[in-house]
């Protein structure tokens, strides 16, 4: 059990002045599914966006603490954020295919890196689509607009788009909240396979999903980390009252 990302005393306030993350300390374990769960507004998305510095786009007023990744505090201003985002990929809750073809969507990250060799790109696209369990469904229509496939397929396309960059960490923020049960099952299955190679951080869209896939779990409530531990233990015998109330469905 090795830590991939280490969060230390992280606090974050947006321009509305409310502290959205308060003194967070948590470890993201390598080659495991790390689940961050809790009711909406708890700060889970904010934390994920801190990992790949996507919060740079948001209106952040105050940010303190450290996030250690590969021996560096990525909150330092001299961090190469482009490089960081290639290593820490992200899948969002709503599938957002870029207004390009399927092929261009998957190759997008590599194209941005300046990769121009068509055969390299083709290889990477196929590999990523296979990993995301989408290859067989789309291999004959790679030049169609990405908006033409179903919602479930689009979300797997978004996963493939991240995988094509061969990242170290994959952040998934409620990736199945807009999907039907079958597509949800496919994505969850992919995650279990992917954790062999990648470190996964998942914000599940309900407690059941959290319990199904979590190796490690962290419960967030109103910007605070309430409880953190091994997935099975946390769901079977939570130590803190709020966690218990939440996993047993008494609130949230």
């Amino acid at each position: 059990m090795q830590s991939k990302i280490s969060v230390q005393n992280l606090s974050l306030t947006y321009s509305d002045g409310v502290e959205s993350l308060h003194e967070i300390n948590v470890e993201v374990i390598a080659n495991a599914v790390n689940v961050f769960f809790g009711p909406a507004g708890g700060g889970k998305s904010s934390l994920l966006r801190a990992f790949n510095r996507l919060n740079d786009l948001a209106d952040v007023r105050h940010l303190s603490g450290e996030i250690w990744f590969n021996g560096k505090n990525i909150l330092e201003p001299d961090t190469d954020v482009i490089e960081l985002r290639r290593k820490i990929g992200m899948v969002f809750s709503r599938p957002v295919p870029l207004p390009l073809t399927l092929w261009e969507n998957v190759a997008y990250g590599l194209l941005l890196m300046g990769e121009k060799r068509k055969n390299r790109l083709d290889e990477a696209v196929e590999k990523a689509l296979r990993l995301a369990a989408l290859w067989d469904e789309v291999k004959d229509r790679l030049n169609d607009p990405a908006s033409a496939i179903s919602g479930g397929q689009q979300q797997r396309l978004c996963l493939a788009r991240v995988l094509a960059l061969e990242p170290e960490v994959i952040l998934l923020d409620e990736p199945t909240s807009a999907l039907d049960p079958v597509s949800t099952a496919k994505i969850e299955y992919s995650l279990l396979e992917l954790k062999e190679q990648y470190t996964i951080v998942l914000v599940p869209h309900n407690v059941q999903q959290a319990a199904r896939v979590a190796d490690y779990a962290a419960f967030f409530l109103q910007g605070r980390l309430v409880e953190y531990g091994i997935g099975k233990q946390l769901f079977v015998s939570p130590k803190v009252k709020e966690t218990e109330d939440y996993v047993t469905g008494r609130f949230g």
Binding site: L57, I82, R85, G89, M90, R94, V96, Y108, L112
Partner: peptide
């Protein structure tokens, strides 16, 4: 959303 996605992919 397009901007966010593109940025998250290293754009």
């Amino acid at each position: 959303a397009f901007r966010v996605v593109s940025t998250s992919l290293g754009g």
